[in-house]
Amino acid sequence: MSNVSGIFQKMGERFDSDAASGVDEIFQFDIDDEMWCATIADGTCDISETEHDDPSVTLTMDEETLANVMSGELDGMQAFMEGKIKASGNMMLATQLTAIFPA
């Protein structure tokens, strides 16, 4: 199991269904050319290693940045401003990630 899959497994375990209430979105992650997708709907979360045809937002970063943001060591907005995270699509959704997947 790659470190990336371990990070996404932990994200799934930390998923906060209350914070995701009313969220019906698809988060695509491009991590060192590994494609991961988190589909959030009706307070549930499905994370899989796949590329979605029409994600709500796509976040591109390296494994280290993903690990640091999801562990709370690095602020996602700060990482974005420093160019460590690139986002396309509905960028406002990216700001909800730390609430939906709390560290």
Rank of each mutant, 00 (worst) to 15 (best):
D18P: 04
G43I: 10
M77A: 05
S88R: 15
M77S: 06
T39G: 04
K86I: 04
F8Q: 04
W36Y: 15
M92A: 11
Q96M: 11
A38R: 08
V4C: 04
D46Q: 10
T50E: 14
M1W: 03
D53R: 04
A87Q: 01
I7V: 10
S21E: 15
A79K: 12
V57S: 05
K10C: 00
F15W: 08
F29D: 11
F29S: 11
E64F: 10
L66S: 08
S17N: 13
N90K: 13
T39A: 10
T50H: 11
Q9V: 00
M1T: 03
I7D: 03
S17E: 11
A103M: 02
L66K: 12
I40V: 13
G22P: 02
Q96D: 10
D16L: 07
N3Q: 12
D62V: 03
M91Q: 06
L93C: 03
V23L: 09
A38E: 00
D30T: 10
G83S: 08
A20C: 11
G12M: 10
D16K: 07
M81L: 14
V57F: 04
A41P: 00
G43H: 12
G76W: 02
G12C: 08
D75F: 10
K84Q: 12
N90A: 14
G76T: 02
E25L: 09
M70G: 00
S5D: 15
I85W: 04
A103H: 05
L93V: 00
F15N: 02
T44C: 07
E49P: 03
F80T: 05
M11S: 01
D53W: 04
V57R: 08
G43C: 10
D33Y: 06
Q96G: 01
V69D: 07
R14F: 02
A38C: 12
T60V: 10
S71Q: 01
R14G: 03
V4D: 02
D62E: 08
M77F: 09
A20D: 05
S21T: 14
R14T: 07
F80W: 08
C45L: 06
N90C: 06
G43F: 12
T50S: 15
E49K: 14
E49C: 04
F15D: 01
T60G: 06
G72M: 03
D30E: 14
I26Y: 12
D16P: 05
L59A: 15
F27S: 05
A94S: 10
K86E: 12
F8L: 05
V23M: 07
G22A: 02
D24T: 12
M81P: 08
G89S: 14
E63G: 12
S5K: 15
S71F: 00
E34I: 03
G89H: 14
